[in-house]
C-alpha cells in the first residue's frame, strides 16, 4: 500500500508535468519524473513495470491513448494520461522510443528455449512480433523486456483484466498459465 501511494504521488506529479503543454518545459523535463517508475536508465526498479526506453513509438502512443480512453486500465497511469493531448502522447512516445533499449542482462535458459518452440509455433508469435521478438511500430518489442512484467500483462490479457487487444485475449484463451510464464521468460530473454 505504501509503495502504491508513493507511486501514485509520483504519477500525479508526472501527470501534472505532462499536462503543462503550454509551459516552456521541455519534453526531457516533463519525462524526467516518469523515471521514478520506469527507471533512471530505462530499467524499472520494480520488475513488474515495463521497460519503455526504446519501445516502438506506435505501441507507446496507442497504450497512452488506450489508457486515457479506458481501454487499458491502470490506476497509476490513469491520472497521468487524463489530461494529455494527442500531441503530448505522441511526443512522449517519440521521446521514449528514441532512447536506447536498456540491457537487462537477462537471457532465456536452454530449457525454456526448447520448451518454447512448440508454443511459439502454435501461436505463430513471430508473425507479429517478428524474428527475435523485436516488434515494430504498433507491435511491442518483447526481447529484453522484464519477464515479470510480461507474465503479468500477458495473464491480464488472458483474464481480460487488460482489455485493449482482443486478439491477444482470444489467442491466449487456450494457453495455460505455465505456458504464459515460460513464453514470457523466453521472449524477454532474447
Amino acid at each position: 500500500m505504501q509503495q502504491f501511494l508513493k507511486l501514485l504521488t509520483v504519477s500525479l506529479v508526472c501527470g501534472l508535468s505532462a499536462n503543462s503543454a503550454a509551459s516552456a518545459e521541455t519534453i526531457e523535463e516533463k519525462a524526467a519524473l516518469c523515471a521514478a517508475c520506469h527507471g533512471e536508465a530505462g530499467i524499472p526498479a520494480d520488475p513488474k513495470f515495463p521497460n519503455i526506453w526504446g519501445q516502438h513509438t506506435g505501441y507507446l502512443f496507442i497504450q497512452l491513448k488506450d489508457m486515457k480512453e479506458g481501454r487499458r486500465k491502470n490506476e497509476v497511469m490513469a491520472p497521468i494520461v487524463a489530461e494529455m493531448s494527442k500531441d503530448d502522447m505522441l511526443a512522449f512516445a517519440e521521446y521514449f522510443a528514441a532512447k536506447e533499449w536498456p540491457r537487462t542482462g537477462y537471457s532465456a535458459s536452454a530449457e525454456d528455449a526448447a520448451k518454447a518452440n512448440p508454443i511459439e509455433v502454435a501461436g505463430q508469435c513471430t508473425a507479429c512480433h517478428l524474428e527475435g521478438y523485436i516488434g515494430d511500430s504498433a507491435v511491442p518489442r518483447l526481447a529484453g523486456q522484464n519477464p515479470d512484467y510480461l507474465t503479468k500483462t500477458t495473464k491480464d490479457f488472458k483474464t481480460k483484466e487488460r482489455g485493449n487487444n482482443a486478439f491477444m485475449t482470444d489467442m491466449l484463451a487456450s494457453f495455460s498459465d505455465a505456458d504464459i510464464a515460460l513464453m514470457s521468460r523466453f521472449t524477454a530473454g532474447q
Partner: peptide
C-alpha cells in the same frame, strides 16, 4: 486493432 474473432493455432 487486430481483429480475428478468435485465433488459428498451428498444431505443433
Amino acid at each position: 486493432k487486430l481483429w480475428l474473432g478468435g485465433a488459428f493455432k498451428v498444431i505443433p
